[in-house]
């Protein structure tokens, strides 16, 4: 696992050069005394937080951010919680009082961070964000995220390819509304499927209750649905790989080879499944390390001379992982 991590880091570093090399440390003019730059004691304090440290992606991404930030010589503190925004808000408010220069919001739910946004605003501290929603948000000076529309169309496209069309096909959609990214792409996929003439199995989107146990939940959804409707399922569109794994397992256990599943995240374990040419047909790789690189460079630019990013909403694209390229793909999670 460690060696894998090192390889990823290397790849990400390479990607960084390619993607963001142009926006490296600039030579822009010194900004005014108040904005940007380091705090009084000379160290540049970054207060990073995530409520999703309990998810693999959240942890890896934020750990990577901390690592890169420290490499730049910043004083990075990471505040985490298990989806407890009360804790996050109060932690961040005290971080602001203690003289943070920049805030990094990792996978924040923009609906739940108003207290810390207000505190940052009054202290005149910019908030950079990774995956802070699906549309431009004035709370952030920059929010880098994946284009949910693209993620949805990639996976729906893959499912269409697997099932041989969408018209008249029965497709189950499994989402998780508390997660804003999953919610957005699930709804987009739902609409795309319906528009293309697919029939939504069960008449509505299935909701998993807890991401941590969603593999088992999805396993039960699909098993139970197949019990009741053995002929009523052609595909399962799932908003994230964990649950997609459960759905694929249910199909395997039911002894079916005519039902396909797609997920998002390209978890290692999911890629292994895709390689087997079984029901797990495709997933999407979101290269969070490249997102980290973008954000780290922009924060560094701000540190140097107070330059804020030009766009406050940056959308990057995911890469479809399916049978064709799974063998060559090295998952990061």
């Amino acid at each position: 696992m460690r060696t894998r991590l090192k390889i990823i880091t290397g790849l990400a570093a390479a990607a960084m050069l390619g993607l963001t090399g142009c926006s490296g440390p600039g030579t822009g003019s010194e900004a005014g005394g108040t904005s940007g730059g380091s705090g009084d004691d000379g160290t540049f304090k970054v207060a990073a937080f995530t409520a999703g440290y309990a998810t693999p992606g959240g942890k890896l991404t934020l750990d990577k951010f901390v690592e890169e930030g420290k490499a730049k010589g910043w004083d990075v503190t990471l505040y985490t919680s298990d989806f407890d925004y009360d804790k996050i808000n109060s932690d961040m408010q005290s971080a602001i009082t203690q003289g943070a220069d920049v805030i990094l919001a990792g996978f924040p739910d923009p609906r739940q961070i108003a207290p810390l946004v207000n505190a940052a605003e009054s202290a005149d501290i910019p908030i950079f964000s990774i995956d802070g929603g699906v549309e431009p948000n004035e709370d952030f000076v920059e929010d880098v995220t994946f284009d949910q529309d693209q993620l949805a169309s990639l996976t729906v496209g893959a499912l269409e390819e697997a099932m041989g069309g969408l018209e008249g096909k029965d497709v189950m959609v499994i989402g998780h509304d508390p997660h804003i990214g999953i919610m957005t792409r699930s709804n987009l996929a739902y609409d795309m499927l319906e528009e293309a003439g697919a029939i939504i199995a069960g008449g509505e989107m299935k909701q998993a209750l807890n991401p941590g146990t969603s593999q088992e939940e999805a396993l039960k959804f699909v098993t139970d649905f197949l019990q009741a409707n053995p002929e009523g399922l052609d595909g399962v569109w799932v908003g994230w790989d964990h649950a997609a794994l459960g759905a694929a397992q249910a199909i395997n256990e039911a002894g079916r080879d005519d039902i396909y599943v797609t997920g998002v995240d390209a978890l290692g374990v999911a890629v292994e499944e895709i390689k087997k040419d079984g029901p797990f047909y495709a997933s999407v790789h979101q290269d969070w390390f490249s997102v980290v690189d973008v954000v780290v460079e922009d924060i560094e630019a701000y540190r140097a001379d107070g330059t804020l990013p030009e766009e406050n909403f940056v959308e990057v694209e995911g890469e479809l992982i399916d049978r064709n390229n799974a063998a060559d793909f090295t998952p990061s999670m």
Partner: peptide, 16 residues
Amino acid sequence: VLVSRLSSASATSAND
């Protein structure tokens, strides 16, 4: 048994 059933072990798999 749960981990074997799911072929995978997450950090919260049996908490619920």
